[in-house]
Design a protein around this nucleic acid. Sequence first.
DNA 1: CGGATTTGACCGGCGC
DNA 2: GCGCCGGTCAAATCCG
Length: 319
Amino acid sequence: MDYSSWVDTSLDLNINPLRVKSEVPVDAERFGMARELKPTFMDFQTKPSAKEETGALVVELNRVSEENRKLTEMLTVMCESYNALRSQLMDYMSKNGEKELLAPSKKRKSESSNNNDNNIVMNGHSESSSTDEESSKKPREEVIKDKISKAYVRTEAGDTSLIVKDGYQWRKYGQKVTRDNPSPRAYFKCSFAPSCPVKKKVQRSIDDQSVLVATYEGEHNHPHPSMEATSGSNRSLTLGPAPCIASLASSGPTITLDLTKSKSRNDDRSSKPRADTPEVRKFLVEQMASSLTKDPNFTAALASAISGRMFQQNHSEKW
DNA sequence: CGGATTTGACCGGCGC
DNA sequence: GCGCCGGTCAAATCCG
């Protein structure tokens, strides 16, 4: 499956302007208002350029709104693709689940059988199943019950830590050197344990030492920590959309999409609610984004998809 | 001082 | 039964 079609990592984001937005002094310079704001306090007292300042702010506001619109559209496309893929996965898993139940297995560890299903979606590395060293001792029923997924995370060259930043908090409870891979394997439990049963194993790829392979077992029964802060109050319905934070691999940047509405747009919405308006579209996108962010698998899926793509890219550069 | 991490010991499943 | 191996425990240690 071609993930590049639904996760476009080459987002044409104008990130810097958004970042400096909150820094007032820099902001002033960027808007070309330094001349007006920086001068002596005499100027400051007389407020000579209030109109210019307003104009610059409006221009900036428009620019940010335009970026917002672009991001919204990208998010919409992504959400649609995600939902489509998700339904496909469900179909596939339901079909394969039956097959797996019927097919007797003498494998020491049956984890891999369930793995393959998830591998396809979670990371797009179908070859990962061939390198899957796991051999389960668990009874089959338990394995089927557990949701197992894998994520590939590229780390920096000198980074020797086995830390995969997926947004959740983990507590390390063990480390082992396994037979088939000289790199140690780290064992993590969700810090919400024992209430949250999720476990994670992290080990460097035997093929590429700079790639961490994170194996997740189980599902979180609590909201994503990074979403918790915003999901508590339904701000998205009242004050504006909640920020959509995609925490990527440790090696990658943390992209924060702050879909904050401008005041003018809010005013517009209150005055003219119309079907097919940008506001309505935005609301729909917010709802989709909200449902996505409530899905604990989405962040992991997104991270693995992107890291998988980075992985592929790197390999194609190498060879 | 309390929580997180480290690391050697221990446990249980599997193959021979 | 024994050894191997992956996974987990828990005391020691680290760190903010």
